[in-house]
């Protein structure tokens, strides 16, 4: 169970998230929807440690954790960014294995084996030596998913996963998300796409603009 308790985030005078509470049972999918500027992405950035909330706490299986603490390698929140943010100077394989080797201290063989297995699962077999620019948008997104998964996260977050995809690819990423659910991966999806949210999520949370005190 992932819990967000009383999360408040302000930018200057503007309150983006006001005492927000959320609970996501392990292995479930939460979709966060709402209009632009309502704070969907801010919420995801707080959860992944990219923003520090003014107040509130995060709990994973009843254990409090600090997402902004870089040393906190046991509670990893994986993120698939809207524009994927693959590292252009590294091959697909290097993109995936860099952090497991440096952070999780995996040996090269283990990291590579895990990466190849995950690439195969996401229909990316044979792409490991290519550079990101040699891949299509959909393939880049799947590499970003593999890269996040290789860190063995407890929670996997997606920021607007369907925004740049055509309908076929949209369906495919939905399929990937549901397959991960079968493996009990807790997932959080920030999206504009209400249809997609309804198709994939167990729970939909609406963030409202201005006061952002949304409810289910």
């Amino acid at each position: 169970m992932l819990e967000l308790k009383n999360i408040t985030k302000k930018f200057g005078d503007r309150t983006i998230l006001d005492h927000l509470n959320l609970e996501i049972p392990t292995g479930e999918i939460l979709a966060i929807v709402g209009p632009s500027g309502a704070g969907k992405t801010t919420l995801l950035r707080c959860l992944s440690g990219l923003e520090t909330p003014e107040s509130g706490s995060f709990l994973l299986n009843d254990q409090p954790f600090d997402p902004t603490d870089p040393a906190n390698a046991d509670q990893i929140i994986g993120v698939v960014f809207q524009n994927y943010q693959l590292f252009p100077n590294l091959t697909v394989l290097q993109n995936i294995t860099l952090a497991p080797k440096l952070v999780l201290k995996q040996d090269a063989q283990t990291a590579t084996a895990t990466a190849l297995e995950l690439l195969d699962e996401l229909d990316l077999a044979g792409k490991e030596q290519l550079y990101p620019y040699q891949l299509s948008g959909g393939q880049q997104q799947r590499v970003a998913i593999v890269r996040a998964l290789a860190m063995k996260p407890q929670v996997l977050c997606y920021d607007e996963p369907t925004s740049a995809l055509d309908p076929a690819l949209r369906e495919k990423v939905g399929e990937i998300i549901l397959n991960l659910k079968k493996k009990h991966m807790t997932q959080v999806i920030v999206t504009h796409d209400l249809t997609f949210a309804k198709q994939t999520a167990d729970q939909i949370f609406t963030v409202n603009a201005l006061d952002a005190q949304g409810g289910k």
């Binding site: 992944s48 440690g49 990219l50 870089p70 906190n72 390698a73 990893i76 929140i77 994986g78 993120v79 960014f81 524009n83 943010q85 693959l86 590292f87 252009p88 100077n89 590294l90 860099l98 952090a99 440096l102 952070v103 890269r147 996040a148 860190m151």
Partner: peptide
């Protein structure tokens, strides 16, 4: 270098030095 490169390195738990050496400086 887009801020997203630093951010994706951060969520992968890379240290600042690792981020600079492996990702940012080559670019």
């Amino acid at each position: 270098i887009p801020a997203g490169q630093f951010e994706s390195a951060k969520v992968l738990r890379l240290t600042k030095t690792q981020t600079l050496l492996h990702i940012i400086i080559p670019q």
